[in-house]
Design a protein around this nucleic acid. Structure first.
Lengths: 216, 216
DNA sequence: CCCATAGTCGTCGTATACGATTTCGTACTT
DNA sequence: AAGTACGAAATCGTATACGACGACTATGGG
């Protein structure tokens, strides 16, 4: 069996369900139920849940149980801020290692996003957004930083409806900033500049979100 | 029992032993042995080990077991680089929230470090160094970032003999940079400057380490 | 004398079982 | 009628038990 241990299977299964939205935030994760559903006993499921807790995807209370981590606006802010920092760093570290082919791929994705702007589909747009950024930071040579970036994205993925669903006006600016980022990388700009640009790109989304929730 | 669950006890116990050096890197963590030692069964110990794995303090291989995470030079580099980024950010975010009393406390610690320079005691110096930086970043309002900083420090703590034991010449420069950092914070310098200074402070230690290992 | 292979031992992985704790429903009291 | 106290059901936490996998070792063949 290539899937590995039961524990690993449970981890992947539950994680997938959270990220794809089958388990919505606040959903009560009952060990016995999940175990029966997956055809394993509770022990591997417990391990899986604890791993997910360490990643911040679920919260866990002693003698109470686990629930899918919520999207408390404060938590959202913290997660975005953290991601802006680590993703900025990851992008800057990746930049020198990105070959022209990858840049072209990213640009193609961004153009697709631009096309999306009119007949707007938040889900699709968010997916393309992730694809775009993946190209930029996946070459990061430091696996720890890369892992932190992935964790941040995963946490945000819990928001099924996507950030851009909440802040529609942000999409257009985002596409422009993507193009700027690509130009910076192509021109071999120095590390600081790229890092700052990548960080600001994310902060801008956060600010847009904050501006909207304040007026609401 | 205020200590909480057996799982939590096991987690704290094993973590403490790793950090204080009772379990040295590469040490084989046998579940049954630890369980018997702590007077619990293997199940809570398993959970504890998995949590420590998520924090990077131990490595785990299927059907093989857990060992205390090593200090592979490459890993050291990655950890220091990651820490330079998150600690820099944490320090910058903390800076506006640090009151004069805290600054004075940090300065006192730094003077103690300066005194240490002559009759040099690496262990003590490293401990003071941690105290100093704690004052600077503990006010960070973003708990995620703060957590990442703590994890980084914990990983480095596995190196019992301390960084400054490996790179003696670095100590004096470090003390000077500390004073500069304090002045920046006191003068209310802008966030970018503080972040850059804090990051460079750590990078300098890393560079010193690299320079030494290359010549060796 | 060295290498291969089979057997044994140690350790991990998971299932099952039982005690502990919480939560919810119900009945009783004020 | 509302609040409280008691009890039962559900769920978690841990122990124990057994099967599975990997690593050591000893023995036989080259």
């Amino acid at each position: 069996m290539v899937a590995g241990s039961k524990s690993e299977q449970a981890y992947q299964a539950v994680k997938a369900r959270i990220i794809e939205g089958a388990y919505t935030p606040g959903y009560r994760l009952v060990l016995g139920a999940i175990a029966k559903d997956l055809g394993v006993s509770v022990v591997p499921v417990r391990e899986a849940i604890r791993r997910l807790e360490a990643e911040g995807l679920v919260t866990f209370e002693r003698n109470i149980g686990a629930t899918v981590a919520g999207i408390d606006p404060t938590e959202y802010l913290y997660t975005m801020q953290t991601l802006s920092i680590v993703e900025g760093a990851a992008t800057a570290l990746s930049a020198p290692l990105i070959d022209p082919a990858a840049i072209a791929r990213a640009r193609a994705v961004n153009e697709e996003m631009r096309d999306c702007l009119d007949h707007f589909d938040p889900i699709r747009f968010t997916r393309l957004n992730q694809d775009f950024h993946s190209v930029l930071f996946e070459h990061c040579p430091n696996p720890h930083i890369l892992d932190l970036v992935h964790r941040g994205w995963n946490r945000l993925a819990s928001l099924r409806s996507s950030t851009f669903g909440f802040v529609p006006g942000r999409a257009r600016g985002s596409v422009e900033e993507h193009e700027n980022l690509l130009r910076l990388i192509e021109s071999g700009a120095d590390s600081d500049q790229i890092e700052k640009a990548a960080r600001l790109h994310r902060s801008a989304t956060l600010d847009a979100y904050l501006a909207q929730t304040e007026t609401a």
